[in-house]
Amino acid sequence: MPIYTKGGDKGTTSLYDGQRVKKDSLRVETYGTFDELNANISLADKLCVSPKNKAILQRVEYKMFFLQGEIATQDTKKFLENSRVISDEDVHGLERVIDQYTAELPKVTSFILPGASLAGAQLHVCRTVCRRAERQFVRFSADVAVRPVLERYVNRLSDFLYIMARSEDHEAQIKQITDEVIKRYAQAMGR
């Protein structure tokens, strides 16, 4: 079975509820940018040094499907009846990670370069894509009623990605120092 349907050959696409809209609509642009963000988060989780960070990012990747699905539905009631949705607990989950990592990581007193490690740099890419998606979401929600929990989730997401980037940079720095100590020890022992 081919993956193409030819349904979009005239510049329209189907939403979750089956309604067709122009491919350049703000709705499609918004959920498409969150899709771009999710692909970038997936790449970041593959680059992470910390297994804990990988697991956290993978949970967020699944939550992104619910966010995108709800945005990709004009008949929100139909989506809410048939799908899992972003909840207050999801917002609180992001906040718990942000609060915990902020307390554990060294204090930042100035601007930082976006990524001292490969995973950190990719997470900063995620953060900037998230900010763009958030700006589109704000424009979208000015014309379309959205559940307030979505606004809160989207608003927390870029802060979450920032703290994850800092965590990965910190983990990479610890690994680099540890590797250097082991190397010097081995040299001193004549190995």
Score class of each variant (00 low, 15 high):
Arg135Thr: 02
Asp75Phe: 08
Thr128Val: 12
Ala145Arg: 12
Asp143Pro: 00
Ile98Trp: 08
Ala103Glu: 13
Glu70Ile: 10
Gly115Arg: 06
Gln136Arg: 14
Glu134Lys: 03
Ile71Gln: 01
Ser83Gln: 06
Gly120Tyr: 00
Phe111Ile: 10
Val138Pro: 09
Asp143His: 03
Ser83Asn: 13
Arg147Gly: 05
Leu105Phe: 05
Ile98Ala: 14
Glu89Thr: 06
Gln74Leu: 09
Glu89Val: 06
Ala145Leu: 07
Gln100Pro: 00
Ile86Glu: 05
Glu104His: 07
Glu81Gly: 10
Arg135Ser: 05
Phe137Trp: 06
Glu81Ser: 14
Val125His: 11
Pro114Asn: 02
Arg132Gly: 07
Phe111Arg: 06
Val144Met: 13
Thr102Asn: 10
Ala119Glu: 04
Gln68Phe: 02
Thr76Tyr: 00
Gln100Thr: 15
Asp99Glu: 13
Pro106Trp: 09
Ala103Pro: 09
Glu70Thr: 09
Phe140Gln: 13
Ile98Ser: 12
Val129Phe: 02
Phe140Ile: 14
Gly69Phe: 08
Gln136Lys: 13
Val85Asp: 00
Thr102Ala: 11
Cys126Gly: 01
Cys130Tyr: 01
Val108Leu: 15
Asp90Gln: 03
Asp90Ala: 02
Gln136Tyr: 15
Ala103Val: 15
Ile71Trp: 04
Ala116Tyr: 05
Glu81Trp: 10
Asp88Thr: 06
Gly69Leu: 04
Arg84Gln: 13
Ala72Ile: 06
Ser141Asp: 13
Ala142His: 11
Gln74Phe: 12
Phe111Cys: 12
Gln136Ile: 00
Glu81His: 15
Glu95Phe: 00
Pro106Phe: 03
Gly93Arg: 04
Ala121Ser: 11
Thr73Ala: 13
Asn82Asp: 14
Ile71His: 03
Gly115Ala: 07
Ala116Gln: 12
His124Met: 07
Asp99Pro: 06
Ser110Asp: 10
Ser117Asn: 05
Lys107Ala: 05
Cys126Trp: 00
Gln68Ser: 02
Gly69Ala: 04
Val146Thr: 13
Thr102Lys: 05
Glu89Cys: 00
Thr102Gly: 08
Ala142Thr: 11
Gln100Glu: 15
Ile86Asp: 09
Ala72Leu: 06
His92Met: 07
Ala133Asn: 09
Ala145Pro: 09
Pro106His: 04
Ser110Met: 13
Ala103Ile: 15
Glu104Asp: 13
Gly93Glu: 07
Arg127Gln: 01
Arg131Gly: 01
Gly69Cys: 05
Val91Trp: 08
Ser117His: 00
Arg132Leu: 11
Ser83Phe: 08
Arg139Ala: 08
Gln74Thr: 15
Ala116Arg: 05
Leu123Ala: 02
Val144Ser: 07
Glu81Ala: 15
Gly93Leu: 05
Glu104Gly: 06
Thr76Glu: 10
Arg84Phe: 07
Cys130Gly: 06
Leu94Trp: 03
Phe137Gln: 02
Gln100Asn: 14
Asn82Pro: 04
Ala121Trp: 11
Glu70Asn: 12
Arg132Val: 09
Phe111Gln: 04
Gly93Ser: 10
Leu80Ile: 03
Val146Met: 08
